[in-house]
Amino acid sequence: MTEFLQRLGHTLPHLQQSPALSVLLTLIAYFVAVAVFRKLRQPVWCPPVLLAGLLLAAMLWLGSISYPNYQAGATWLTFLLGPATVALGVPLYQQFHHVRALWKPILVTIPLAATVAVIYALAIAWALGGSSEVLASLAPKSVTAPIAIGINQQIGGSVSLLMGGLLVTGVVASLFVDWLASRLGITDDRLIGLTLGINGHAIGTVRAFEISAQAGAFSSLGMGLTGIFTALTLPIALQLLNIL
């Protein structure tokens, strides 16, 4: 009996050695968050990714599973971000006729908006005493996660802080687009979609698809082009400035 109790105590540590537990907990948090989100009638201020993150953090804390331990198992999921980045090329190709129809405004806006998004955030964080590690972590904040992680590997900084930054940016960008668009009397779904994708990456794009399919398509486009532009320019710009 005592031997059984001893083994019982060692069961959770044993299970932690396999990736199955990490993947299982992530999937549970994901499905519960999506269900709760639908129950709450899809509030803009509380997207599934925020719910899922909180839920997962609570589960890890309750199970006293350390983050590095969890993360090691979850590489089975995070590995898929690589092919998922490549996959973004398919909607980009499919929406290419939109680019052709609106190529001028899109080609002017994306480099401008992607650049000021980085400059505004970094200037404010720097003025408030952010260290160079913090600034590097926040720089790709408006870029969709798989591309942002690629940028992070180039420029350095904390991946966890970057992902938290992506979460906050995506959530508040969706809120601000809703609020500012109605204040400015903007009702064009193409314009709202582009703004969501440029500033709010995947979280903004999920929001755009809630508005309309057209907003969603333009948001995917804005997200993809912002990601490409930032990935191509940010590491080189920082290298040139040599500020990090």
Binding site: A52, L60, Y70, Q71, L77, P146, I149, M163
Partner: peptide, 11 residues
Amino acid sequence: ILLIMPGVVGV
């Protein structure tokens, strides 16, 4: 969103 969760929770 599922794929970025392991990173997000790190915060």
